[in-house]
Nucleic acid binder design. Sequence first.
DNA 1: AGTAATTTGATAAAATTTTATCTATAAAAA
DNA 2: TTTTTATAGATAAAATTTTATCAAATTACT
Lengths: 216, 216
Amino acid sequence: MSQCALKIDKLPSVRRLPAYLHLLRELSGKGEQFVSSPYLAEKMHIEAILVRKDLELARINGTPRVGYCIADLIKGIEDFLGWGETLDAFLVGVGQLGASILGNRELMNFGLKIVAAFDVNPRKVGATVHGVPVFDSARLEELLSRLQVSIAILCVPAAEAQQVTDVLVASGVKGIWNFTSENLAVPEDVITQKEDLASGLAVLSVKLTRNKPPTH
Amino acid sequence: MSQCALKIDKLPSVRRLPAYLHLLRELSGKGEQFVSSPYLAEKMHIEAILVRKDLELARINGTPRVGYCIADLIKGIEDFLGWGETLDAFLVGVGQLGASILGNRELMNFGLKIVAAFDVNPRKVGATVHGVPVFDSARLEELLSRLQVSIAILCVPAAEAQQVTDVLVASGVKGIWNFTSENLAVPEDVITQKEDLASGLAVLSVKLTRNKPPTH
DNA sequence: AGTAATTTGATAAAATTTTATCTATAAAAA
DNA sequence: TTTTTATAGATAAAATTTTATCAAATTACT
């Protein structure tokens, strides 16, 4: 087995890393130097041992009775996620959702900088939404190749999702953050990440019904 | 072990159910009667056996060589999720994100009906956003007890999240769909579901970096 | 009618994720 | 200084989730 083939999945852990990062930055802002796994566990509502397992990804050593150095942890997590230097991204589809993503100041803290947005609506083209210029979707291909952007945020209506995706892929986009309800078809070397509001609601619904007193 | 204590977790499966529902409704709309696990698997980019495992939750029997009855599946999934009859919900915080959630027509298909929104901004109070009236946040407690709403969608700034949560909990809210970056503290009998944009981005980032050719 | 092909569903295995246990270590307290 | 306490980290166990295997069932084909 080659040194490159080591599987570093741990997707559930990866999913929790941004929450740690958020907490750690908050603590850092308050001037804290160290943090312990029990502290983080309490905040995150998980077990301390799980926190330690998660933080193994950051490859930072803590010290007994003291905890982890917050600055090191932040750096370690950022490095693991590749959020050291921010990546440029395009956003396609400046509807309600697209606009709210453009307005999300926090994204910049997450390794992503949206440098341009695209829409088919002529009344939106030319405008600037939260500091991001909106271009005509017809220029997507042109600007993609010009700016060498490899990440796209997809917020178009479901009916157009696959078609836009095909353009993105053809222009060399390697990662698509998919906010549509479509299951996109892409080549093997393109990564898609689908965000699905409903899945969270499903979890909430199930937990709520399980929480109710039985009705028999 | 009592008959009520049987653990019906399978959270990953639960998370996928809405995606099945979406596909099934689409097929149903096209007049299809039956669907097979290999078909759904291809659409969802997962294995057929996993589809069958997931669909066990709906407690619907398929027939060999034919598949599952789409109408039955839809009903079974809706019932499992408690999405048979829609629940009323309040939305608190009509910012960009809140407004985009109010505008999400699909939510109604997911067992949730937002009957009122709340904001502290006097310029928003009194308005109607996507058909939902916006009230002053000061009236949250009053209207919660009056309308007996048990689900809240939290879209306020992080700094106010816990404070608003305390009001919600005090007024009998049992489920909070949390779109803030705060880890809310709530009593044991209150369910919170935190939506975290960044976690999806983390997965995308990690997969992208793992996808790259090694640099040594 | 008989055969082949496809799909479900049951059972089992494998993989992943979470939790538990224990030792070593560093700091605080006695 | 010695003892106590809290925490990290290693190892192991348990729980969960995904994948595999195979028999039974049903349809389509010969």
